Amino acid sequence: MEIVLKYFSDFTDTQLQQLQALSGLYQEWNEKINVISRKDIDALYEKHVLHSLSIAAVADFPNGMQILDLGTGGGFPGIPLAIFFPEVQFHLVDSIGKKIKVVEGVSEALGLKNVTFKHSRVEDIKDRKFDLVVSRAVAPLKDLWRWSKPVLKKAPAHEQQPGLICLKGGDLTEEIAESGVRPQLTNIYKLFPEEFFQEKHIVVVNK
């Protein structure tokens, strides 16, 4: 928890309580359904919570915005972002049902009113459109962008509004070349100079 407060300080009492509760909730759920590796659960706040919140360090989401977390896994980056932006609506989807069960349990325990969830592949979402898609290391960039485009709302042509913000690691040169898009990259280590983030990036693709 201290590592999150090292870089973010403007939390309400409710947000602090929710953030503090994450550790116990994920330890409890991880014993039933393994969604976080054993070695990572002890570093939850650095490797999962702060990593997710790196998106909040580069993007500000207006109240009422609707965001899809594609392949949310155990709820990252969606749940930390939902805590950080309580007036923004997050829809968390994953193709693996047991992971959505964890997301549902954690969200309800935290009392998050701005999170919905669905056991679904993103390709099967036909009835909703979103302002933005977020994702963390789910698939190659070309696939993430291909899946994102059909579920994004149409923005006016003059708006260079982000369509996809994803968290990636390692050398992305080949992946970006294959994607056919020109993303903006932010090295997370420049935001949070911790060893874990040295080869981690925030990748922003505009609509």
Rank of each mutant, 00 (worst) to 15 (best):
V205M: 00
L19K: 14
I188P: 03
T173Q: 10
D60I: 09
T186N: 01
R182Q: 15
Q184C: 04
V151P: 02
Y26R: 11
V103K: 09
I100Q: 13
F61G: 00
L172W: 03
E178S: 08
G105I: 09
A43Q: 07
L70K: 05
V93E: 05
Q89A: 06
L110E: 14
M65L: 09
F8A: 13
L44F: 13
I79L: 15
P162E: 03
P162H: 04
E46V: 11
V134P: 06
L164H: 06
L50I: 07
N206D: 03
L191H: 09
K98W: 05
A157L: 12
S37H: 11
E46F: 07
I3H: 10
W147I: 08
T116R: 10
L152Q: 00
L81D: 08
F84H: 15
K32M: 08
P140E: 05
P77S: 09
K168Q: 08
F197P: 02
R182I: 12
I55Y: 04
L144N: 01
T12L: 13
H158D: 12
N34P: 04
L172G: 05
K190P: 00
L112S: 14
L68E: 06
K142T: 04
R146H: 09
G71V: 05
Q161A: 11
F11L: 14
N30Q: 02
V102D: 01
E175Q: 03
L25E: 14
A137T: 08
F85N: 13
S52I: 09
I188S: 05
H91Q: 08
S120K: 07
F90L: 14
K142H: 08
L132N: 01
V122D: 04
N114T: 01
L164G: 03
S135D: 02
G105T: 07
L152I: 00
V102K: 01
L16W: 15
G64D: 04
K126N: 13
E87F: 02
F85I: 06
L70A: 12
Q160R: 13
V203Q: 05
E174T: 11
D60R: 14
A139M: 12
K190Q: 15
T186M: 00
L44I: 14
L164S: 02
F192C: 12
S37K: 11
K154V: 15
A59G: 00
D94E: 14
Q18F: 13
F90K: 14
K168W: 09
L164A: 03
V106Y: 11
V4I: 15
D143P: 01
K39R: 15
V138W: 04
S120R: 03
D42N: 13
G64I: 02
K168G: 07
W147F: 13
E108V: 10
E2G: 07
D127L: 01
H119A: 07
D124K: 08
I83M: 12
V115P: 08
D69Q: 06
G97W: 02
F8R: 11
A139P: 03
